[in-house]
């Protein structure tokens, strides 16, 4: 109990320091604009590329995650993503990954929620890794620049390997009796 409390406290100060770092960073970006500090302006542009996506994607994504956690019952997830559902869960995980907007940023919290609803390790590992591999809009862009052949080889080779590695990792973590963080 004591330990748990100190851990929570540590977490809180950690959060505060993150906010302070972020605030200082924003301050730096604004001052860079004012005094025309080129490095800072460039950083601001980089910052905006990702910040814009996060501002737009994360809020609706988390509302959908909330709906998922409240409405979907455990049984449905256990049947489709659980230990006993064989290769089917990997196919579902890949399909879900291909349609996840926002890539891994959204995939991490979704994977955690799936896990606590009864999905097993191998399906969530497959899900996260393929979320960055097979996102449909990105793959289309890749094919148009590097050639369709490149994209097909990349996806064709990586997906089976991702499934195999997920199965191996899952059996490892079962031996460790590993649990994903809850309450995040």
């Amino acid at each position: 109990m004591e330990r748990c409390y100190s851990k929570m406290k540590k977490k809180k100060t950690n959060n505060t320091s993150n906010y302070i770092i972020f605030g200082a960073f924003i301050g730096f970006l604004i001052i860079s604009r004012i005094i025309n500090f080129e490095l800072g302006i460039e950083m601001g542009e980089n910052f905006w590329i990702f910040a814009r996506d996060m501002i737009l994607i994360l809020p609706p994504a988390f509302v959908i995650i909330g709906l998922f956690e409240i409405w979907v019952d455990r049984e449905t997830i256990e049947n489709n993503f659980g230990e006993s559902s064989g290769i089917k869960k990997h196919i579902y995980a890949i399909l879900l990954a291909a349609t996840t907007v926002g890539g891994t940023f959204v995939a991490f919290p979704v994977a955690n929620s799936l896990y606590h609803k009864g999905a097993d390790y191998s399906s969530i590992f497959t899900y996260i890794t393929s979320a960055s591999l097979v996102m449909i809009p990105m793959s289309i862009m890749e094919a148009s620049i590097l050639g369709l052949q490149f994209t097909l080889i990349r996806i064709g080779i990586s997906l089976p390997l991702v499934v195999i590695s997920s199965i191996i990792l899952a059996s490892l973590f079962q031996q460790y009796h590993y649990h994903l963080p809850s309450d995040v």
Binding site: Y19, F62, V63, G66
Partner: peptide, 19 residues
């Protein structure tokens, strides 16, 4: 309840995303 759940989860991880 769902919206609140989503909001709470988001607020918890927000500092991580900012970093």
């Amino acid at each position: 309840k769902s919206i609140n759940r989503g909001k709470n989860k988001f607020m918890k991880i927000l500092p991580g995303y900012l970093k």
